[in-house]
Structure formats: structure tokens, C-alpha cells
Design a protein around this nucleic acid. Structure first.
Length: 179
DNA sequence: CCCTGATTCGC
DNA sequence: GCGAATCAGG
């Protein structure tokens, strides 16, 4: 392979800078880039020296953070306990083929993300996971995107943009559902 | 609970 | 240099 897609190429770094400067959160940027975690993004941001984008006052809060013990947790399986029964699972209220009119100016680096590894079946689909349908719902190969969805929305940032063409949703709405 | 960025440190 | 683990805070 040429590249696993997990390296910081110039393009990625540029996009990272752009999005970060744009005010997107690390997790959102990570989702957009694909194949990277938000930690990776944050780490890179700091390394690049463009951290503290707006604020800089550092009350030495995290100064006490540095236990670092286990060398990589062996497993964090999350056996999916009492899972939400998809009784009325949203069978994609969206076009299976979002082939609407492409503003022709869009579709740049944002349509190539979608990490296959994130795709999940209905069984592994959790609340807060992107429900973007992939494939034929009548076939067993049917999968959902599965990436972290925007709080309050059924899709991840990537698919939310496709689903809600009008006015890009740069800033996700916070739900504040504190129960 | 969800999330945010910050930091350390093994690799 | 990279990023997982972990933290502190919202």
C-alpha cells in the first residue's frame, strides 16, 4: 500500500490546521480526517504549536496529570449490555443514495473519509453512533456508519453534512439533555 | 453521562 | 514524531 492513511501528510496537516482554526473540536476533526483519534489530533496540534487557539491561561490544572501506567490496555470490549432494542430502528429516513445536486464546489477531501473499520451492524449500533445506512437494508451485509454521531443528531459530522446540505453545520448543537 | 483540550511518556 | 492513556474541567 502506498499509505495506510494514518500519516500526517501535508494535506492532512493543512486540513487539520484549517479545521482547528475554524473552531472545530478535536474529535470532530479526527472524524473528518478519518483513521485518527481525537488524541492524535490534539497531540499533533500541540506539536505543531497551534494549541491554545483562543485561550492560553493555563492554571496548571493538568499539571498533576501524568500517571501513565499500563502499556496499552489489552482490551476494553464493552460487551454491549442491555442494548437499545431497535424496535423501530430508523431505517434511514435519508436517501440511500445522497446523489443530489452536488454544488460541484464541494466534494473535496470530505468524501473520502468513511473508515470501513467503523461500520457496524444493527446489533452493534449504539445510541450516539452514526446511523447512516450503507448498503441494502434487506441484505445481511447491511451496515451503518457507526462513527460517533453528533450529540442530538443521528449522524456523524461527515454524514450530517451530506444529510443536511443547507447551511453547513460547522458548530454542532449541544443538546444539554441532563435529565 | 456526554463532552472538551492538556499532558505525559512508551513506543 | 506519534498517539494512547489519563487527567481536569465544563
Amino acid at each position: 500500500m502506498i499509505d495506510a492513511g494514518a500519516t500526517w501528510t501535508d494535506e492532512r496537516v493543512e486540513l487539520l490546521k484549517k479545521l482547528w482554526t475554524d473552531g472545530l473540536s478535536a474529535s470532530q476533526i479526527a472524524a473528518e480526517l478519518g483513521n485518527v483519534t481525537r488524541n492524535a489530533v490534539i497531540g499533533k496540534v500541540h506539536r505543531l504549536g497551534l494549541s491554545g487557539r483562543a485561550k492560553d491561561a493555563k492554571p496548571a490544572a493538568a499539571a498533576a496529570a501524568r500517571p501513565r501506567k499500563a502499556t496499552r490496555a489489552p482490551s476494553a470490549p464493552a460487551p454491549l449490555p442491555p442494548q437499545p432494542h431497535p424496535g423501530n430502528v430508523v431505517i434511514a429516513p435519508v436517501p440511500l443514495q445522497p446523489v443530489t445536486k452536488e454544488p460541484e464546489v464541494f466534494v473535496a477531501e470530505e468524501d473520502v473519509a468513511i473508515p470501513m473499520s467503523e461500520r457496524v451492524t444493527i446489533m452493534d449500533l449504539r445510541e450516539s453512533m452514526c446511523r447512516w445506512p450503507m448498503g441494502d437494508p434487506t441484505k445481511p451485509e447491511f451496515r451503518f456508519c457507526g462513527a460517533r454521531s453528533i450529540t442530538g443528531l443521528p449522524y456523524c459530522t461527515h454524514h450530517a453534512r451530506i444529510a443536511y446540505q443547507p447551511v453547513a453545520d460547522r458548530k454542532r448543537e449541544r443538546k444539554l439533555a441532563r435529565a
